[in-house]
Amino acid sequence: MAQLITRVTDPELFVDAGQIDIVDEGLECYVADESATGIVDARPGGSGAAVICATEIGHVVMTAELWDGPPPLCTDGWQDVADMPLHWLRDEAMEIGGEGTSLTEPPTFALRAGLHMIRVAGRHRDEPDPRDDRAPAEEYLIQVWPAHPGAATAGPVLHKRTSALAARRTALRAGLPRAGRGGTPG
């Protein structure tokens, strides 16, 4: 059974341009392909990923976890959950959220070069932007672990998609009409 190595929570992570950047120390952010899963995308060149948020500019709650293997899958209480293979090019720290963190230092995980998986779960993604102060905070769980070599060819895995936001963004990829509230994995 996989073991949790470390966990960090930022209760007020600042989001700009509608995404949480996950990059190595030398890589600047990039524009994510929102249509891949509607919630997470990995940079094709490696060493970068992004969590796709409903909030364009504002604060979200983010918890990040580093595991030594695949963590248990839990979709209960989350609107959208997806896995994405992530190629990490160098033995460098993975920085999550960059300078937008409310913590003393940006959350970082020491990663070895190689293939990893990143799972992102999100909730409260259908609130209007800007968000009403009484609305629940948009929230994300980011889990990272070393992957087996076959994961790269498997591509992204959509475990759950119930937010209208993810349904609209994944419909763009398929060239389908924009979906309303709800949706199921495609």
Rank of each mutant, 00 (worst) to 15 (best):
C74H: 06
G114K: 14
D80P: 11
D80C: 12
H116S: 02
T75L: 02
Q79E: 15
A113K: 09
T104I: 10
R125C: 11
G98W: 12
L103Y: 07
E105L: 13
G122T: 03
P107N: 04
P85Q: 07
M84A: 07
S102R: 06
T101M: 04
E92W: 15
Q79H: 14
P70Y: 08
L89C: 03
I118K: 04
L115P: 07
I96G: 09
R125W: 04
P70D: 05
A121W: 03
I96Q: 11
P107I: 12
A121Q: 05
G69P: 02
R90S: 11
G122D: 10
A121F: 00
G97A: 14
L103Q: 01
E105T: 08
L111E: 15
P85W: 00
D80K: 09
G114R: 09
A113G: 10
A82P: 02
W88P: 00
G97N: 13
T108W: 05
T108H: 13
A82R: 03
T75W: 01
H116F: 08
G98E: 12
I118L: 13
G114V: 01
R123W: 09
H124R: 10
G114T: 05
G97R: 13
L73I: 06
Q79M: 07
E92S: 14
L115K: 07
L89Q: 06
G114I: 10
G77L: 04
F109K: 04
P70E: 12
R123P: 09
V120T: 05
T101R: 03
R119V: 10
G114M: 07
A82Q: 03
A113W: 12
E105I: 00
L115G: 11
M84H: 06
M94H: 09
P71E: 01
V81D: 03
G97H: 13
W78M: 08
R125G: 02
T104L: 10
E99D: 15
A93I: 09
P70I: 03
D80R: 05
R123C: 12
G122H: 01
L103W: 08
F109T: 13
H116P: 02
T75I: 13
A121D: 01
F109A: 11
D83W: 00
F109S: 04
I118F: 02
H116I: 02
T104W: 09
L103R: 12
E95I: 15
A82T: 07
W78F: 04
A82D: 07
L103A: 09
L115Y: 10
I118Y: 03
R112Q: 13
T104C: 09
L86F: 01
E95A: 13
R125V: 07
R112M: 05
P71R: 02
H116G: 06
L89Y: 03
G122P: 08
R119T: 01
C74L: 03
H87S: 02
L103D: 04
E92L: 15
T108Q: 15
P72R: 03
H87C: 08
G100L: 14
I96L: 14
A82W: 03
P85I: 02
T101Y: 00
L111D: 11
T75M: 03
E95C: 15
W88F: 02
V120Y: 00
A82G: 06
G100T: 11
I118N: 01
P85G: 00
D83E: 14
L86K: 02
V120G: 00
Q79R: 14
I96F: 12
A93N: 14
R119C: 04
V81S: 01
T101S: 11
L111S: 06
T108E: 15
R123V: 10
P70M: 08
W88D: 01
C74P: 05
M84L: 12
